[in-house]
């Protein structure tokens, strides 16, 4: 299919607030993106009319209970079948920030053995605590090109993208930490880790690892590579003028590193379908 035929569903509920810039990023990469209210999707439009599903950032339903938990429950209660089919057909699903939290709460990530009715991981409160808006460095870890959102990014590349969240500390249950980490690595599900500007692992050091995520984890995919969630906001690092110090160089860079993610998925879909 051609890029302009790719239909992107940017889903929102009350409290979603990064839909407009996410839509802009997909459109800028030549795809056809549409912001759809969850109520609309359950009433009139079908999820399967779309090629990509995106759950953007925000505070869905106020993030009461736990970040993303209410929307995840709503997903599983009303869209479970459609969503399963969507994922099984290999249509890409992207969760950014609050969207990542939703995907984890809904059992779509990390999905070690199929979809789990219970979350296998959590995005817990930051440490140091509180909301944190800053630019971070990410190292691309996936070597197998499985993840459809990052397959155009060479392994070991350093990306600079901002975060903005209060609950982004990726954790596993303490007793399962090692086992699950091994699974993540074995399945090549670990996509992004926080790192220092020179690419050296953050090793939990603040602020390179801004929230004390386990193993500096910033983004993971499902074993299939088609479901991907990350805490940083690639849509805020799409253009050169969004960079925090673009004034440094004499000429403004045209693009930021976030664009690579949108370009990757576009290329994947144009090739595959």
């Amino acid at each position: 299919m051609k890029r302009k035929e790719i239909r992107v569903c940017i889903l929102r509920v009350g409290g979603t607030n990064c839909d407009a810039e996410t839509k802009r990023a997909f459109q800028e990469s030549g795809m056809k993106a549409e912001v759809v209210h969850f109520n609309q999707l359950t009433k009139t439009k079908g999820l399967l009319d779309f090629n990509i599903l995106v759950i953007p950032g925000g505070f869905s339903h106020g993030d009461y209970v736990r970040a993303g938990a209410i929307w995840a429950t709503q997903f599983n209660a009303t869209l479970k079948e459609e969503l399963s089919q969507f994922v099984e057909e290999g249509r890409p699903v992207l969760g950014i920030c609050n969207g990542f939290q939703v995907l984890v709460e809904a059992g779509l990530l990390p999905q070690f053995e199929g979809r789990n009715p219970f979350p296998e991981a959590a995005l817990a409160s930051n440490n140091p605590p509180g909301y944190n808006c800053r630019w971070v460095y990410l190292r691309h870890e996936s070597s197998s090109n499985k993840c459809v959102f990052t397959r155009e990014i060479p392994v070991g590349s350093i990306l600079r993208i901002p975060i903005a969240h209060a609950e982004g500390r990726f954790i596993f249950k303490k007793e399962k930490e090692e086992k699950y980490l091994k699974k993540l690595l074995d399945n090549d599900q670990l996509i992004f880790r926080y790192c220092h500007p020179n690419g050296k692992s953050a090793e939990g050091e603040y602020p390179a690892n801004p929230n004390n995520s386990f193993y500096d984890i910033a983004g993971i995919s499902a074993p299939s590579g088609t479901v991907f969630g990350l805490m940083p906001h690639p849509e805020r690092a799409y253009f050169g003028w969004q960079l925090p110090d673009w004034t440094k160089s004499g000429i403004m860079p045209t693009f930021g590193d976030g664009r690579l993610i949108f370009e990757s998925v576009a290329k994947y879909l144009t090739k595959k379908f």
Binding site: N17, C18, A20, E21, R24, A25, G57, G130, Y131, N132, C133, R134, W135, P162, A164, P197, H233, E235, R236, Y238, W241, Q242, P244, D245, T247, K248
Partner: peptide, 21 residues
């Protein structure tokens, strides 16, 4: 203080309250 405010949402902040690294 400033980092507890999201100054990037909407993706249109060209010159930010805190500059660079």
């Amino acid at each position: 203080v400033v980092r507890t405010y999201d100054h990037e949402v909407k993706g249109n902040t060209v010159l930010k309250p805190l500059h660079g690294q």
